[in-house]
Design a protein around this nucleic acid. Structure first.
Lengths: 156, 156
DNA sequence: CCGTGATAGTCAAGCTTCGTGACTAATTTG
DNA sequence: CAAATTAGTCACGAAGCTTGACTATCACGG
């Protein structure tokens, strides 16, 4: 399945970039003792506080439905990355708390992503990479509000 | 589902950007007479030549499995975006050929994406946006070859 | 104090997308 | 002309997400 043309548009381009980062992250994690974490688990692990976080809070931070967070936490409990603890302030709620294994995954994932960025920085030069990243953040913030600009651009 | 923190890493950041572009593209297409095209259809429509393209070729260009391309073409035939024509040079092969409706979708999609980029360009300034896009292409090309750099980065 | 409405988490069913392996027909190779 | 390749399809299953409904608990106003 090999050839792959230059990406036709910005959407596909960023999709390809994202997939490439994901591939490196999860294959490297697999080599470092975490072969069972998958991208979707990031919706929990990437947003987890050291002292535990509620599922609803994780849902809001990640933008995923509560239902999804529930099943992800099920899997992560199974894999011994987190535990469910009762929340002392609210008997309905449960805190999702990372285990030692979970904390290890989190710090390794951050290290791998930092290494990726460091590589890009070295290839680009520090200032050019920094401004690229700033532009990406700004453009993302801009694009997320596209509905506000609806009539702004006249059509054809 | 509301709050959404600042994206924790580059992977998620680009993912958010891609999703935002996709949302604008397909909602706008829906308003312009194409309510049934979905993102996956892009693997065919975005890579289609005006005079037709083989499924295998589409598979290589898009990076999707032949099986996937087959089902996408099934759907697009159903929706009258393309037809399957026999390939005169090879009786095994069929050419996927866009209909007038298909060509309309393709040109509208390109126009919408161009409008998005124009908006970003206006917000950023032409030169800064151009260099951003060039950096994104370069960094994507770089990241796709991450396996080559494996031992390069010593690990803590 | 109590009832009404909101909130936390879960259960269940269904849909979309993708991956994998096997198979037929036609072509290319030697 | 036999053997290996290639184009397209069929069948099955696994992930991931969406939606709606339901139980237990909390918060607020009367």
């Amino acid at each position: 399945m090999g050839d792959d043309r230059p990406e036709p548009d910005v959407g596909m381009l960023t999709g390809t970039f994202m997939r490439a980062v994901q591939d490196e992250l999860f294959e490297t994690l697999a080599e470092q003792g975490h072969p069972d974490v998958r991208p979707r688990h990031g919706s929990v692990l990437a947003f987890l506080d050291r002292d535990g976080t509620r599922a609803t809070e994780l849902s809001q931070r990640s933008g995923q439905h509560k239902q999804i967070i529930g099943t992800i936490v099920d899997e992560l409990v199974q894999l011994a990355y987190v535990t469910r603890e009762p929340d002392p302030r609210d008997r309905r709620a449960k805190l999702v708390v990372p285990t030692a294994h979970g904390l290890d995954e989190i710090s390794r994932a951050r290290a791998i992503l930092a290494a990726i960025e460091r590589r890009h920085e070295q290839a680009f030069g520090a200032e050019e990479y920094t401004s690229f990243k700033a532009a990406l953040q700004r453009i993302t913030r801009l694009q997320r509000q596209w509905r506000d600009h609806r009539g702004t651009q006249p059509r054809e």
